[in-house]
């Protein structure tokens, strides 16, 4: 049975290798923080980290995860960048409906982990793949800068 490391925990999960990671997380493991938004890697709601790199889990078959560590919204608060982003999101009240925000937070955390002082162009490049229908972009940008300063 394939073994995965999810938020630091080893999990044996018996799923077909072509199942996207999103559905293993949501339907098999009951980890519903990661969201389904489009199914074609257009919206970023399903963003998780593999070894710290932001990926779209709706398009990533579990067979291609290999031995890379999976981090989801439920675990990102255990990283320095993730905790800073989550605190900034609360401090600045970034969130409205919140459905896209796990993906936004995962992309922002990956950005901040690799770039402690992102400018507007860095934010555009890292975050353009994450849609928000409520239109929280003004505060997402402020939130990333706020987290970088903290």
């Amino acid at each position: 049975m394939p073994e995965f490391t999810i938020n630091g925990e080893k999990r044996d999960v018996d799923v077909p290798s072509d199942m996207p990671l999103l559905w293993m997380l949501r339907d098999v493991l009951g980890m519903t923080g990661t969201k389904f938004g489009c199914g074609i890697a257009q919206c970023g709601a399903c963003t998780v980290h593999l070894d710290g790199v932001a990926v779209r889990s709706c398009q990533l078959p579990v067979g291609r995860v290999g031995n890379r560590a999976i981090t989801t919204i439920e675990g990102i608060g255990n990283t320095s960048a993730g905790a800073k982003i989550q605190k900034a999101w609360i401090d600045l009240e970034v969130i409205q409906c919140g459905y896209c925000q796990p993906g936004q937070i995962m992309s922002a955390a990956a950005l901040l982990a690799g770039n402690p002082a992102p400018d507007d162009a860095d934010i555009d490049a890292a975050m353009a793949g994450n849609l928000c229908r409520c239109g929280t972009y003004v505060r997402i940008r402020e939130g990333i800068k706020h987290a970088a300063r903290s």
Binding site: T32, T34, I73, E93, I95, G98, Q101
Partner: peptide
């Protein structure tokens, strides 16, 4: 502060 934000920020909201 909004009362629904903390859970939404950690993926806990159902």
């Amino acid at each position: 502060h909004r009362i629904d934000t903390p859970d939404k920020a950690i993926g806990k909201t159902v």
